[in-house]
Amino acid sequence: MSSSVPRNFPHSEPRSLLAGVLAVLVHLLFIALLVFGVSWKDHPPEGMMVDIWTELPKPVQEPVKTQAPPKQPKPVPEPVKPEPEPPKPEPVKPEPPKPEPPKPEPPKPEPAKPEPQKAAVAAPVKKPDIAMKQKPEPVKENKPDLEEQKKKEQEKIKEQEKQKELEKKKELEKKKGLEKQKELEKQKELEKQQEIAKQKEAEKQKALEKQKELQKQKEKELAAQRQREQEAKAQREAEAQRAAQQAAARNQITGEIGKYKALILAKIRSRIVMPPDLPGNPVAEFSVTLLPGGDILDVRLSKSSGHAAFDSAVERAIFLSKPLPLPPDPALFNEFRNLNITVHYRE
């Protein structure tokens, strides 16, 4: 009995925990696929988001250093080594295409400064050389002291002579000044007289010019008046022509309308079965409402002839004669929309 297998002993299920982990993994994979798949589709619009990349340029200083060299060659072709490096920044940047412009701006000053500094350093070094050459010259002059003393004495004498000459010149100048003042006064008086004369002449000329201008204005006004008169005449003629044309058109239209009205009446008359032996010449008037195309919408007896047989005969004839003949021009249809038809018993 002890050897018998218990009826219900559970199976030790293999790797059930691993199964749970795998299930979660499958879902994570699926979600990742979805999220990345959808965001992959969104990438083009996300490229518009420049804000994300404005913060990054600082860490990307390496390309800045390497990018600067290609722009240096313009002023000085000294930095030849960095030139092969520029390709490196290009692979780093393809992700942010727009922020590129801001990046190069900061580097410009950096490389620019060293160049002027180098140039400045080189220049002062050369300048002293020139200064050194200049200095020795005065040193040579200092050696002959005696000559200098003699020169100084001579210079002093010369200066004294110059002062004397200057004093003489001043006296002469004073005399000349007095003479000049007298001459100037005379000249001023002459100039005043001349100016007065010139003013008078100018006034005369101005008066003449004014007269001429007035004459010109009068001529212009006359010419303008003539032109206006001519234009008015032309307008009148054009209006007359238009009126004539319009009248002609109206005549044509009225003629056409009359013609088609006559056609309509003739068609109706042809369909009337006249009741025999009516006394006198009775007249029946109908108002007919037409549709475009000649169909009859409505027929009303507006004035009876006094004979019911004749009235009904005419009405039947009107209905029989549809479609009524209408002019081909649709603009004329308004004239036929409401027709008054008058039918005489005897023509």
Binding site: H11, E13, P14, S16, L18, A19, L22, A23, H27
Partner: peptide
């Protein structure tokens, strides 16, 4: 649906291992 999917995948793997075993 997420819960159903998780449990279904869990059973899928469990049964896979059990039946293989």
């Amino acid at each position: 649906l997420i819960l159903i999917s998780l449990s279904s995948w869990w059973f899928i793997f469990r049964k896979l291992f059990v039946i293989r075993y």
